[in-house]
Amino acid sequence: MAKKIIINTRNIERVYTNGMIKTYALKDISVQINEGEFVAIMGPSGSGKSTLLHQLGLLDIPTKGEITIDGEDVVHLSDSERTRFRLEKLGYVFQSYNLIPELTALENVYITPMARGQNSEEYKKNATDILDKVGLGDRIHHYPSELSGGQQQRVSIARALVNKPKILFADEPTANLDSDSSEDTVRLFRQLNKEIGQTIVMVTHELEEGKKADRIIWVKDGLLDKNKK
């Protein structure tokens, strides 16, 4: 059975303009990612890999081109529609965890299902279950400042997964972690991908991590590097 394409981009371009100077961060990028695929985006520093992830994850808007996610044209969505789309269909894991320091691990995880309108019992149970799944069942009432980097990143993964997103985006999720925690994180991604068929798009600069994905998309100078496979 043919796999369903969940992300489809056509000729996307991202240009930053400063006065008369134009800087091309992405040029003519066309990629397809299948549902249930674990894809790594790799490339040298400044190649545009994070910029590409931000376009795919609706955190930024491309200057040109088309992006379709789960069959929906996401480039032309209004600001509030994009917010809703992120809440309903996407999950994010950032390099520096980006948890809300005023919220406990549990609250950081259930804030998005709460915003989706789930009832209190439901969102607390879902958040507790997912924190349990990432190995933080005994830390749910801890604040981010009381957790290690690896634990914070796992909270961040739990937050990204709690709404069962169509796609999980991870932007250099292991960059601030020690080697053990990094390995744990990538292993967890692999496990989620295998067990529940979670689509994952991960930016990394570590080849070993990239090799654990189903496929690597190489980016260089804002273009797809087709010489690398």
């Binding site: 955190l59 600001d79 509030s80 917010t83 809703r84 789309f85 992120r86 809440l87 309903e88 996407l90 994010y92 980006n98 948890l99 809300i100 320091p101 005023e102 804030i111 998005t112 915003a115 937050r159």
Partner: peptide, 16 residues
């Protein structure tokens, strides 16, 4: 400002 950006990124409405 950073917290506000994070909340927006994870899908919390601007109005909220």
């Amino acid at each position: 400002r950073k917290q506000i950006g994070i909340l927006k990124a994870v899908g919390i409405k601007k109005e909220i």
